[in-house]
C-alpha cells in the first residue's frame, strides 16, 4: 500500500494550489467530419472494409444462410462454429437441416478449457452476430456473451459476421452515446475492422497473423 500512497502523495503535492481544467470535450470535432446520408453508410463501410481485405456481401435478411453455405463450400471447409442459442444460430441450423449440408455445425457450449485443443486446431470457421457497425472507420462491433464467447471471433481462421444495415452508425461516438455504453460495458467489447494482419516485416502487409485470415461481413438489408 505504500507505493500507492507515495505515488498519489507525490502527484497531489505537485498539483497543490492548482485547479483541475474544465472538461473540454468537443462533440462536434468527433462527429461533424463523420456524417453520412443513411444510404451512404453501407457504401462507406464496405469500401473501407474491402480496402483491408474484408469480404463484404449485401444480402436479404432471409437468404443469408444460403450464402453462408456457398461461402463455406467454395473454401472446402469442414465445419462451422455457431451459436444455437441465438436467432441467427437457429436460422442457420434450420437451413442446414433442410438442405442436408455435410458441413458440421459446432457449438461453443462448454468452457474453453474443456475443448481448447479442438477449438485451436480443428475449427475451420465461425459465425457471429454483431452489435452494429461504424461507417466512419469500416468497423463491426462485437459484444461477446455466453452464446458467442470472446474466442469465437478470434481463433477460427475464417470469421463470418452478420451486420444489419439498419444498425450501421455514422461514427463510434454516435454509437456509444446512443446506446449509452458508459452505463455498463460487458467484460469485453471488440471493434473489428478487418482480418488479422501485420506489417512488422519490412512494412509488407500480410494477413492472418494471429487472428482470422479472412473476415467476411454479411450486410443484411431488412426488406
Amino acid at each position: 500500500m505504500t507505493a500507492r500512497a507515495n505515488i498519489l502523495g507525490k502527484l497531489r503535492n505537485s498539483l497543490a494550489g492548482t485547479t483541475p481544467r474544465p472538461d473540454e470535450f468537443d462533440e462536434g470535432q468527433v462527429t461533424r467530419p463523420w456524417r453520412y446520408a443513411p444510404e451512404d453508410r453501407v457504401t462507406r463501410l464496405r469500401s473501407l472494409m474491402e480496402a483491408v481485405h474484408t469480404e463484404v456481401h449485401q444480402c436479404h435478411s432471409d437468404s443469408w444462410p444460403d450464402l453462408v453455405t456457398q461461402l463455406l463450400n467454395k473454401r472446402n471447409l469442414r465445419n462451422l462454429l455457431c451459436a444455437p442459442g441465438t436467432d441467427h444460430g437457429r436460422a442457420l441450423q434450420a437451413h442446414f437441416e433442410a438442405t442436408e449440408q455435410t458441413i458440421e455445425l459446432l457449438a461453443y457450449d462448454k468452457p474453453v478449457e474443456a475443448w481448447k485443443e479442438e477449438l485451436f486446431w480443428n475449427v475451420d470457421a465461425s459465425l457471429t452476430g454483431t452489435l452494429g457497425g461504424i461507417a466512419a472507420t469500416g468497423t463491426v462491433v462485437l459484444w461477446p456473451d455466453r452464446h458467442e464467447p470472446r474466442l469465437m471471433s478470434l481463433v477460427p481462421p475464417v470469421h463470418i459476421a452478420l451486420l444489419k444495415a439498419s444498425e450501421i452508425h455514422d461514427n463510434l461516438y454516435d454509437m456509444m452515446v446512443s446506446q449509452d455504453w458508459a452505463a455498463g460495458l460487458p467484460t469485453n467489447v471488440l471493434l473489428v475492422s478487418g482480418p488479422s494482419k501485420t506489417a512488422d516485416i519490412e512494412q509488407v502487409l500480410a494477413y492472418g497473423a494471429h487472428g482470422p485470415r479472412e473476415l467476411i461481413v454479411l450486410v443484411l438489408e431488412d426488406l
Binding site: T187, L190, V192, S196, G211
Partner: peptide, 17 residues
C-alpha cells in the same frame, strides 16, 4: 484491426476469458 475493451474477468455464466 482490433480495438479491445476489457472491463473484467470471465463472469460465472461466461465460457472463456
Amino acid at each position: 484491426t482490433y480495438v479491445n475493451l476489457i472491463s473484467g474477468p470471465r463472469k460465472p455464466d461466461e465460457l472463456d476469458g
